[in-house]
Amino acid sequence: MASEKLTAMAVSDAKYSGKPHKLTDGKGLYLYITKHGKYWRYDYRYGGKRKTFSIGVFPEVSLATARKRLQDARNKLSEGIDPSYHKQVAKLAGSGGDTFKDVAEEWLQKRAEWSDGHRRTVRQRLDNDLLPYIGNRPLQSIEPAEVLAVLRRVEARGAIESAHRIKTLASQVFRFGVATTRIASDPTRDLQGALAKHTEVQLPSITDPAAVGELLRAIDSYTGNPIVLHALQLAPHVFVRPGELRGALWSEINFEEALWTIPARRMKRKLEHKVPLSNQSLAILKSLHHFTGAGTLVFPGMREDTRPISDMTLNAALRRLGYASGEVCIHGFRHTASTLLNERRDFDPDLIEAQLSHVDGNGVRRAYNQAQYVELRRSMMQDYSDYLDSLKQLR
């Protein structure tokens, strides 16, 4: 290990020689001597720029203390945090100033239209990946390179898609800051192309008809919690998104009309979605009603009946049935239905897309779809449920 260049005595004896000069100590630390005093400083690079961090004034800050503060600054830098803003952060802490956290919390409070599930997801991303690193930073002082350093941490753990989603989340907070005159512009706008490209990965699903029949037989043999069993049985017949399935309310189910109406607030695209229920779907729901019909949720959690079962619970049940995570997941039933229905070519692709609640870019056509497709989809859903039953008979 290289020896330190300065000693306490050398620092104490150093004198101004008629012009400012430096006494270096290594690792970027040096004593800057002027006619006004002796100043500890640390030179470093951040975001491609040379910067200087003021550590303190000698003798109030000794050589030993300066080295300790240097190490603290280097640690921050290794975490992607610009140490030059350390004092600003300390001053703002608890002051109610416009930090990233202050603005993020205000922005979050105004998102009354969000579902509880989406709000929990955003809250988790803020708490885990943004606030620990830039939460206490003055909003107007945050630079693109600082945001990129935070995103690189997410990227480094292999979560490429999450890194892009967190970048979008940060941008929403910054744009709220622009709208409320806290900052002039969104620093994430300069990060276009800075992250690794996210490649869309098809969620695991089974599309071979014989294998689908085998999966359906395996589900029927499930001996665990009856709520989980009924969710697994219903999922292939309605092929809605997992969150839409899990969060189903009994008030949304109309047994007389054989129709499940999912309100816009629970839909990914924020548009009401009508799901025609086949005879098989109705039978599953009526069977489940004996277990959970007295409550609000169709699929309440096993520990807390005010919250629905989780994706993890349903996917764990599939693992218990012998299916690996790379073979099938609860979301995969959507791809299964889309593939089987399109391959059979018995129904217009627009019907399939409407049932999958994929939004049509044409507003007039979308309105027509909503008005006209329900009865056509009802025929398709009954046909598909009958087809699934026939697959279960294949051996």
Results as ranks from 00 to 15, higher is better:
1 M>D: 10
5 K>C: 07
6 L>G: 02
6 L>Q: 01
8 A>M: 06
10 A>N: 06
10 A>C: 07
12 S>T: 06
13 D>Y: 08
17 S>I: 10
21 H>M: 09
21 H>V: 14
21 H>D: 08
22 K>G: 04
24 T>A: 13
30 Y>S: 07
34 T>Y: 05
41 R>Q: 06
47 G>D: 02
52 T>E: 05
55 I>C: 01
57 V>R: 08
63 L>E: 06
75 N>V: 05
75 N>M: 10
77 L>E: 08
78 S>G: 14
79 E>Y: 01
79 E>T: 04
83 P>E: 05
90 A>P: 00
91 K>V: 15
93 A>G: 03
94 G>V: 06
97 G>A: 15
107 W>G: 02
111 R>C: 14
111 R>V: 15
112 A>H: 11
119 R>S: 10
119 R>C: 05
121 T>A: 06
124 Q>A: 13
124 Q>K: 12
125 R>Y: 15
128 N>A: 11
145 A>C: 04
145 A>E: 02
146 E>W: 01
149 A>F: 12
151 L>D: 08
154 V>S: 10
157 R>T: 12
159 A>R: 00
159 A>F: 03
164 H>D: 10
168 T>Y: 15
168 T>H: 15
172 Q>T: 15
173 V>L: 10
174 F>Q: 05
176 F>W: 09
178 V>Q: 00
185 S>G: 09
185 S>A: 14
187 P>Y: 01
189 R>S: 14
197 K>V: 14
203 L>Y: 11
205 S>E: 03
207 T>D: 07
208 D>M: 08
208 D>F: 06
208 D>L: 09
210 A>Y: 12
217 R>I: 08
218 A>C: 11
218 A>Y: 04
222 Y>G: 10
225 N>E: 14
226 P>Y: 00
228 V>I: 15
228 V>F: 04
229 L>C: 09
241 R>K: 08
241 R>H: 07
254 N>Q: 07
255 F>Q: 05
257 E>W: 12
260 W>V: 08
261 T>F: 00
262 I>E: 07
273 H>I: 00
273 H>L: 02
279 N>A: 11
279 N>K: 11
281 S>F: 04
286 K>L: 09
294 A>L: 09
295 G>C: 06
303 R>K: 13
304 E>F: 03
309 I>V: 13
311 D>W: 00
311 D>A: 05
311 D>Y: 07
311 D>V: 12
315 N>D: 00
321 L>D: 05
343 E>M: 04
343 E>L: 03
347 F>Q: 02
349 P>R: 05
359 V>K: 06
359 V>N: 05
360 D>M: 14
362 N>Q: 02
365 R>W: 01
367 A>R: 00
367 A>K: 03
368 Y>Q: 12
368 Y>E: 08
370 Q>D: 01
374 V>Y: 03
375 E>C: 03
387 Y>W: 05
392 K>A: 13
394 L>W: 06
